[in-house]
Computed example of a mutant assay.
Amino acid sequence: MERLHTKIQTLLAQYSCRSAVIVRNESTGNALAINPAMVFPAASMIKIPIMIEVMRQAAAGKLPLAKTVAITSQMQTGGAGILKELQPGIKMTVAELVTLMIILSDNTATNVLIDLAGMAAINAAITGLGLRSTVLQRKMMDFAAAKAGRENLTSAADLARLFAGIAGSTPAVPPPYNAMMLDILKRQQIRDKLPFYLPAEVIIAHKTGTLAGAEHDGGILFAPGGPYIICVLTAELTANYEGLQLVAMIGKIIYEYIA
């Protein structure tokens, strides 16, 4: 992957932001890593370990996926998602909340799931999964907590470890639940970063993240000779559109190299 590494480094040199990139062929083990352990504000990438812990509890019978929750006005929060736009009182299953948390990055669904699974349990799962830089310290849209230093954090190495598990190498939950997570990630609706320049028929199971000055994307690209684990994190962007362009171009470069 030396040629791919060089192309990505050349592109990154055109930007002043912090960045990290991992590309790994799960079939061959060939990989490149740029700043894999660098810590970033997690943004919505933190929703991956939340999903994993919810599925772990579901598999253990502690949090049934069929359990319903009435979404009250007190639960509705701003930012990404659709639940904030719906009439309070609508009932959602845990499975539906997980789906909305991932495919639309719904913040209301995320906060409800944090309450259901428990922040301490989610962080215990993060530790148990061997993640070194990832921590859940606040709910979505709690900017007061972030300002006070309680930011959600992660790294490309940690995310790559999670996606590799979902891809099947070291699953964190029983196969049916792991397959469900993979299926949800494949139905991602936010496609303005890694998949932006990819042909429509290419399958990528992924999750994005956005904060002021940060744009992330990561997941599993299904391509000949793969699958490939890809994680791209950025921070300290001058403007977020630059991050969108950068991550999208990295996705294009990776796909052209693979193809």
Rank of each mutant, 00 (worst) to 15 (best):
A164K: 02
K207S: 02
A33F: 09
G218N: 08
Q189G: 09
F222D: 14
P174D: 11
G243T: 10
M51N: 01
Q74S: 09
A13I: 01
L129S: 09
Q245P: 10
L129H: 06
K186I: 04
S155G: 02
I258M: 12
E26Y: 12
L63P: 13
D106M: 07
M55L: 15
P174M: 07
A248C: 09
K47D: 09
T127G: 11
L63G: 13
M75G: 00
N35M: 01
M249R: 15
S19W: 07
T127D: 14
L11R: 01
P176D: 05
A43R: 12
S105E: 10
P199Q: 07
I102P: 10
R132G: 10
F40G: 06
A80I: 03
K67A: 14
Q9D: 12
N107Y: 13
Q245K: 13
E96M: 03
V23K: 07
E2P: 00
T72R: 15
A156T: 06
A125G: 14
C17F: 12
G165N: 03
I71Y: 08
R56D: 07
L11S: 00
V54I: 15
A80S: 15
Y257V: 04
E151I: 08
K67C: 02
P175K: 12
Q137K: 14
I204A: 08
G61F: 13
L244F: 15
M140P: 01
I22P: 09
I230E: 07
L153M: 13
V94I: 14
N123H: 10
P195W: 05
H206K: 06
P41E: 07
I229D: 05
T127N: 08
T134L: 10
I220W: 12
D217S: 09
G149E: 04
Q57I: 04
P195E: 11
D142T: 05
L86S: 09
N178P: 04
M55K: 03
F143D: 01
A13T: 03
L104V: 15
